[in-house]
């Protein structure tokens, strides 16, 4: 029987050149297959560094990271086929239309030509964007851009989705639309989701488990309800403030 662990991080350390502080300090984390894990933390906590290491963009100094049993250093090509990335920035070509952007990413993922059109149509219709698919991305609203940014990470049907603040800057309606879609995806396809955010309220609703990261160290990990009980807090936000303040003291 295969291991239920989708992402396994052990003793991960990363420090940047010319910087005294370590970005990630001996970090250990296991994310189970089919789980939605929220990685929370203040600015500069190391969330984006961890995200970048998991994407293979940044090299770690020590430790081991495995995604679906594949080592991130030696088996990155296999990992690339498993993971879907949704960066914080709108990682799309602004002058190309949504359809052209998505066609390009489909081709780069090796999706068959005959499937591309229907796949794009299906994804656009899920977000109610079918009618505007031929408009250039630069003419879209913030919510529409975020939706296309998300679709671009889902095209190859990844088993693991890495989301770096996917709803930053969006209004409530658009946030709900995107999060609801992600939740559906997780339920229907058992997609593992690693999600970084500053939106603690949303994380509390959306995530099975959360981890609070500060100054490169994972301070606590647990289910939102358990953490609230443990810290006798009314919300995850209170837990977050207590944990990070404790460390500052």
């Amino acid at each position: 029987m295969s291991s239920p662990i989708a992402i396994n991080i052990s003793n991960l350390t990363k420090h940047y050149l010319k910087e005294q502080n370590v970005a990630l300090n001996n970090l250990n984390l296991e994310i189970v297959r089919g789980e939605v894990f929220g990685l929370l933390g203040p600015n500069g906590a190391g969330k984006t560094t961890l995200f970048s290491i998991l994407c293979g963009l940044v090299k770690m100094n020590s430790g081991k990271v495995e995604i679906e049993g594949n080592d991130i250093i030696t088996q990155m090509e296999r990992i690339k086929k498993i993971i879907g990335i949704v960066p914080q920035d709108i990682a799309l070509y602004p002058t190309l239309s949504a359809v052209e952007n998505l066609q390009y990413f489909c081709r780069m993922h090796g999706i068959r030509k005959s499937e591309i059109t229907s796949l794009i149509k299906w994804n656009l219709s899920l977000f109610g964007l079918l009618g505007v698919g031929k408009k250039p991305i630069e003419k879209y609203s913030g919510g529409m851009k975020r939706s296309i940014n998300l679709i671009a990470g889902l095209l190859h049907d990844p088993g693991i989705l890495l989301l770096d603040e996917p709803t930053v800057g969006l209004d409530v309606q658009n946030k709900r639309k995107i999060m609801s879609h992600l939740k559906d995806l997780n339920k229907k396809k058992q997609t593992t989701i690693l999600y970084t955010s500053h939106d603690l309220e949303q994380a509390e609703i959306f995530c099975d488990r959360v981890g609070i990261l500060n100054e490169g160290q994972l301070l606590i990990v647990g289910r939102p309800a358990e953490l609230r009980n443990h810290f006798q807090a009314g919300s995850l936000e209170e837990v977050f403030v207590k944990v990070t303040q404790d460390q500052c003291r």
Binding site: S52, C55, G56, L57, E77, K80, K81, I83, I85, P87, Q88, D89, I90, A91, L92, Y93, P94, F105, M108, H109, G110, A152, G153
Partner: peptide, 18 residues
């Protein structure tokens, strides 16, 4: 600058081919 490099580098295959 606009973060596309993150997506491009995580596409299957070598970035050089892109």
């Amino acid at each position: 600058e606009n973060g596309l490099i993150t997506r491009l580098r995580t596409l299957p295959g070598n970035y050089f081919s892109i």
